[in-house]
């Protein structure tokens, strides 16, 4: 069975801004499905429509076999939603927030304690602290607890790790894996490409369009270029000079390094590239082939489109 089915979904805000154009995908039950893409790509719009907070302009969307427009009330009881911005009450304590949302869902904390226990255990030392005073990671854990408190069949997590430190991010994903084991389907979005590999399947989304849907492994295997990393002193001045290098290639900054992908006859182009660097007097430390990450794949897919 499908937990989410979306067909030709369109959303136009104020008759002007096209936030989604012809988005179609499905999420199987028990899957962790990732929406990956830069900010402003339409991820939050999809979440808002699925959470029945926003009406689609056209197209179909169903959650747990129920239509988001007509069966909003039923859907609301079956899903847990964690919005992109912290939306709990900052002046209520951790425990008060949890009790409040449990009551709103006609549920009690003790009924679903087993489900949230691993997260709740980390929150217990802070249970009398006001939610607004928590760290970013703790805030998200509390929000997740509140979203899980009524044992939803589907979790919608809109950028749960944005603004969270790397250690807490890794922890958060461990928690998600755990939640998946309890049979809960998870739709999660993230702007961090490295997190995409932790999903069963991902959809790469940009400017309201889905570029690719597949498992992270398949997406990485489908990478067509030959990717090299090069360490230079000033990435951007080198990129400026590379404009004169007229063999087909694709280069972009990647952290402190520069990634460059060649598409035809990599050995020959690589030699040309090395001599080009020497001609231009560009000093570089390291030039070595690497395995593409999801981010490299994403960039390739965007450029080739």
């Amino acid at each position: 069975m499908k937990a989410i089915e979306i067909e030709n979904l369109n959303k136009i805000y104020n008759n002007r801004v096209q936030a989604l154009s012809d988005v179609s995908f499905y999420v199987s039950e028990g899957e962790v499905f990732g929406l990956v893409g830069p900010d402003g790509g339409g991820k939050s719009t999809i979440f808002n429509i699925l959470a029945t907070l926003l009406l689609p302009t056209s197209g179909q969307a169903s959650v747990l076999s129920r239509d988001v427009v007509n069966d909003a009330k039923i859907i609301r009881q079956l899903i847990g939603y964690l919005p992109g911005v912290f939306s709990l009450y900052p002046d209520l304590t951790v425990e008060e927030n949890l009790i409040f949302f449990a009551t709103m869902y006609k549920s009690r904390i003790k009924d679903n304690l087993p489900l949230i226990r691993p997260i709740w255990k980390q929150l217990v030392p802070f249970k009398d602290r006001r939610a607004g005073k928590l760290s970013g990671g703790m805030k998200q854990k509390l929000a997740l607890c509140c979203a899980l408190i009524h044992k939803p069949a589907l979790l919608l997590l809109d950028e749960p790790t944005t603004g969270v430190d790397p250690v807490s991010r890794a922890e958060f994903w461990d928690i998600l894996t755990n939640i998946q084991k309890q049979g809960i389907t998870v739709l999660v979005s993230t702007p961090y490409m490295d997190e995409a590999t932790r999903c069963d399947r991902i959809a790469l989304i940009q400017e309201g369009k889905i570029i690719k849907i597949d498992t992270p492994t398949n997406i990485m295997e489908a990478y067509r270029g030959f990717l090299y990393t090069i360490k230079v002193e000033n990435v951007f001045s080198v990129m400026e000079k590379l404009k004169e290098f007229d063999f087909p290639c694709n280069y972009y900054p990647y952290g402190q390094e520069l990634h460059i992908a060649f598409y035809e006859a990599p050995e020959i182009v690589l030699q040309k590239f090395c001599s080009f660097l020497r001609e231009q007097n560009i000093k570089f430390e390291e030039l070595s082939p690497i395995q593409p990450t999801i981010e490299d794949c994403f960039i390739e897919l965007v450029k080739l489109k």
């Binding site: 959470a51 029945t52 907070l53 009330k73 609301r76 009881q77 899903i79 939603y81 919005p83 911005v85 912290f86 939306s87 709990l88 009450y89 900052p90 949302f101 709103m104 869902y105 006609k106 509140c146």
Partner: peptide, 13 residues
């Protein structure tokens, strides 16, 4: 403004 209204609205209350 803070979004808690949305959280309230998607509960069955």
């Amino acid at each position: 403004e803070t979004g808690s209204m949305r959280m309230l609205l998607i509960t069955p209350v």
